[in-house]
Amino acid sequence: MSDDTPRRGSLHAVQPWLIPAALLTLWFAASESGAVPAYLLPHPVQIGGAAYSYLFGGPGAMPYAGRFWEDFTSSIVRVAFGFGLAVAVGIPTGFFSGRRALVNRLISNTLNALRAVPGISWLPLAMVWFGIGIQTTVFLVALAAFFPIYLNTASGVRQVNPILFQAGAMLGTTPMRRVFAILLPAAMPQIIAGLRLGLGIAWAYLVLGELTGVPNGLGAVIMDARMLGRIDMIVVGIILIAVLGRASDLLLHQLMRLCFKSARRLS
């Protein structure tokens, strides 16, 4: 979509919300009619109440009342550090592996083998290495988010049309300018795709990282609620992670578009 596509009225603004609305209606109907018992999936109104008291405090939601901001802060810090680490390592690694065949031959075998290992297998090892706490979560998030960022950057950089480098060379570009004025912008759509995939996975692994006895965080709330049999809080946690994941994805995309011409104008 280009930045100068005309706005096409309210219909386009409504369309993204049709499926969420339909799902909510279905859920409402299923709960009202008794087709789905509350111990499997509580009534949306009950979830709404639990979410309200989790977010803003209030009676009847102990031990979770008003805890949201604390959990949110811990989780967002873990995601930010993990994702930031993945970006800091993934983009340069992908960059060199996409441009230098030697680097690619050296590392792609190893990295693709490691990529096949499910994140959960790292959990016990990470706990031995880093103990219980933020480091384990950051490690898992960074590890998981690294692969899509690395792979997409490498493939984006590899697929830049060579004629653009020829054009750059005859126009007299310096090596520095070749990287920042040709290579990066040309690979931008795929780099963004990698970042968005990586951020999505970062949220997924956040919950995994918070499974292990950390006292706070959205993942910790979900696991804690399971122990206490609080199905409503599990659902609240799931919905909150979905909302935050989507919001951070939009934020990332907009931020890239704000910072890079090529992000606005390509894709």
């Binding site: 049309n161 004629i163 653009l164 020829q166 054009a167 060379a169 005859m170 126009l171 007299g172 570009t173 004025a181 040709i182 912008p185 040309a186 931008m188 011409k261 090529s262 104008r265 390509l266």
Partner: peptide, 29 residues
């Protein structure tokens, strides 16, 4: 020995930078 702005090429295919406007492309070199 090397490509340089003293010998410029107009290619058969489209070799403009797709993320730059017409005037930015012209100003590039």
């Amino acid at each position: 020995a090397r490509p340089g702005p003293d010998r410029c090429v107009v290619f058969q295919e489209d070799a403009l930078f797709p993320w730059l406007t017409v005037e930015e492309n012209i100003a590039f070199g």
